[in-house]
Design a binder for these strands. Structure first.
Lengths: 240, 240
DNA sequence: CAGTGGTCTAGACCACTCA
DNA sequence: GAGTGGTCTAGACCACTGG
């Protein structure tokens, strides 16, 4: 029953074998897969090696492991996909276009009267409003708030040159992020994007935290015609 | 220097400690982190335990490991987020609403004249058109094609009762998927969704393969007001 | 309470790669 | 050539849990 796959480590071959039998449907959701000691015999290896393979599969969500009971094929496949939330400048340049940034507005604002998620009352914010262009054509609008208490250095950056998202991405590590994707009519953004106010737009909202403290929030609006988020998902990511 | 975190396994504590020092900025991208044997001494444990922690961090992309050189903080953070592509029925029921399915059209079609990505010419397809309702209010429209050569059982399923997506998710394992998210005006879907034809809608297109063979393609349209995709991303996923 | 997975040890050999 | 990470072994003890 031992499978002769590519020349690689034994634990990753065990992982691949089990993975293939699950994905091919040979082992269906709910089925118990062989015990560790059975796989030890099958592959003539130690328990650690089997354990590494199965732990990896469990981490990927393909199997579930229960003491005393065994390991089972997970009830359903993960309905998640890795979605690239690209840096706009990088995305534009990747497509061979010339990127231009237009800073429209910039000022410091303190939240005095009311909180504004994710920021609490009293937060000092740097407010930015800008426009991204690809080959001199409007690509997206962006309205951003940066928490100056957490990122004081942002106050000295010339965001007429460096896109706020790119600067933050490479200067401020984040630990949590929440993305909301929606649609709406262009409305006020229609003029900035050179489209009709009644055109459909894709809207991306993101809140970002570092260790529970809000760092930045941003709302980006894209013309529906020119942009769509693409998420390609292939198999589980090996982690061994 | 040993950190007394929550009561958990030692390797996950080592992982957490290193992770925190990276995320806090104490160890910056490009920095070398302690050698395995140094961490062995620091935590008074065996090399396998340290290795498990660092391998996990490497799998998550937080560090890069090089023989002879050591382990280094990865140059930049992953700009990806996990986006839940929910099963519509599950999503509606999760929110406590009553789910209803309306099958609008169903027929078998063979691609004779032209291919239709991701399907090749000659593929026999089951075409479905349906509407998802939450508490009797239109929630989304769905147009789907299922490759009958690969999923013959689909021809015998009553998709007036079981949502196609739910059935496929639990019956046909997939290995690759590509999601496209865009915005557009409601147009013809406006009537089905009880909104104006000039309203903005969120559109989700997904192609799914199993081992390179196209299984299904689907286009779902949501009213902009009633739906937005939310992707919450917190740190890296532990895999130990 | 018996058997599973979870964790850990104290070694070992190897491949790679940098100095 | 020396030192790193990659892999593997043959044990061990423990926590949990299902029969």
């Amino acid at each position: 029953m031992v499978d002769f796959g590519q020349a690689t480590s034994l634990h990753s071959r065990i992982r691949s074998d089990v993975e293939r039998r699950i994905l091919s449907g040979e082992w269906k959701p709910g089925d118990r897969i062989p015990f560790e000691h059975e796989l030890m015999v099958e592959y003539s290896c130690s328990r650690m090696t089997v354990s590494k393979a199965l732990s990896s599969l469990a981490g990927a969500g393909l199997i579930q492991r229960r003491r005393r009971a065994g390991s089972f094929v997970a009830p359903q496949h993960v309905d998640m996909a890795a979605l690239a939330i690209p840096d706009i400048r990088a995305e534009i340049q990747k497509n061979g276009a010339i990127y231009t940034l237009e800073l429209i507005e910039r000022h410091v604002h303190e939240l005095t009267s009311s909180a504004e998620p994710p920021f609490e009352l009293g937060t000092r914010l740097l407010r930015l409003s800008c426009r991204h262009l690809a080959d001199n054509r409007p690509f997206a609008t962006e309205r951003r708030s940066i928490n100056l208490s957490e990122v004081p250095a942002a106050e000295d950056v010339d965001f007429g040159i460096v896109p706020p998202g790119s600067w933050l991405l490479s200067n401020v590590p984040w630990t949590e992020a929440e993305n909301r994707i929606g649609a709406r009519l262009a409305e006020a953004d229609g003029d900035l994007l050179n489209i009709g106010v009644d055109s459909a737009c894709l809207m991306l909202e993101r809140h970002t935290w570092r260790a529970g403290v809000p760092i930045t929030s941003v709302r980006q609006v894209f013309p529906a015609s020119g942009f769509s988020l693409v998420a390609r998902f292939a198999g589980m990511n090996p982690d061994g």
